[in-house]
């Protein structure tokens, strides 16, 4: 029994000290308040959340962002995967090219799209102008109405390929047998899709939805570069607000409290997904 313990110990040590201990540290400071009398324990940080407009707005923004981006990425990715589920020449090159957006550093994605969306010299407005469309009011990231749309679009650009590739792999893992049986049984294309393809694709779908949801809920990098949460606070998601609280206002206790809400949220949602996944596998 000694050998396996020896092998696992270093990894456990690293994870405990750098993943678990910070959480404990965080709980501690979230429950503390600095008063003139020193440091006391209180729930004040958590109580503040309910009345903090910035927090509530940030949560709303996060949900809107997540649901909108997830829906677009999923539908586009699934559609593409279904259409392209055949042997394609140059598949390796094609796959590598599609991977580029999601492998870019998020900072670079931010830079790329800031350039594209620049109202004056960006490629988007430049091309629209050439098509005769008036772009005066299309200030994308600087416009309160369009900013959220822009950041969502950027995320869709970056991650639809991922959804596409995972679902494609899932589709191709489905054996030919059930399809042939369905054909013989006289099933129509839609029926085959509903009763054969979809159920067998469920594990891949759930995994991809789970991973994307987790990533979307905690989004930070791209929005930071694109809009810094602006204009004003129009695109501030929860991670950005936590960052602002901790590193602009240095209110670490409050930031820690918010982190916990975020952690609880992501844990609950992932638990729900995993419950679905396991239910599928049991069948």
């Amino acid at each position: 029994m000694l050998l396996p313990v020896l092998f696992i110990a270093p990894a456990l040590a690293v994870l405990l000290s750098l993943s678990i201990y910070p959480l404990i540290y965080s709980v501690t400071i979230s429950l503390q308040q600095e008063t003139s009398a020193g440091v006391t324990w209180s729930f004040e940080n958590f109580a503040r959340l309910a009345s903090d407009n910035f927090f509530l707005t940030a949560m709303a923004h996060t949900f809107v962002y997540t649901i909108a981006a997830l829906t677009c990425e999923f539908l586009l990715g699934l559609g593409l995967a279904l259409l392209l589920n055949k042997q394609i020449r140059g598949r390796g090159l094609f796959r590598a090219s599609l991977l580029v957006p999601m492998m870019l550093p998020t900072v670079v994605v931010g830079v790329v799209w800031r350039l594209m969306l620049n109202p004056n010299f960006g490629a988007i407005n430049g091309t629209l102008k050439q098509l005769g469309i008036n772009t005066e009011s299309l200030t994308w990231t600087a416009s309160p109405r369009l900013a959220m749309l822009s950041v969502i679009a950027v995320d869709v650009w970056q991650w639809t390929p991922f959804v596409f590739l995972v679902l494609l792999a899932g589709l191709q893992a489905i054996p030919q047998g059930p399809y042939e049986a369905a054909l013989i049984d006289g099933s129509s294309r839609w029926q085959t899709f509903r009763h054969v393809t979809l159920p067998l694709l469920k594990p891949a779908i759930l995994i991809v939805l789970l991973l994307r949801t987790m990533d979307l809920l905690r989004v930070f990098d791209q929005i930071f570069i694109l809009t810094e949460g602006g204009p004003g606070f129009a695109t501030e998601t929860i991670s950005l607000y936590i960052y602002r609280t901790a590193f602009r206002f240095f209110d670490f206790g409050y930031a820690a409290a918010m982190s916990f809400v975020l952690l609880a949220l992501t844990s609950v949602i992932s638990a729900i997904y995993i419950r679905f996944l396991q239910a599928k596998e049991a069948v």
Partner: peptide, 10 residues
Amino acid sequence: MFPAIVTAVP
């Protein structure tokens, strides 16, 4: 699965 910000602050 942790959001990075959760451990970044501590």
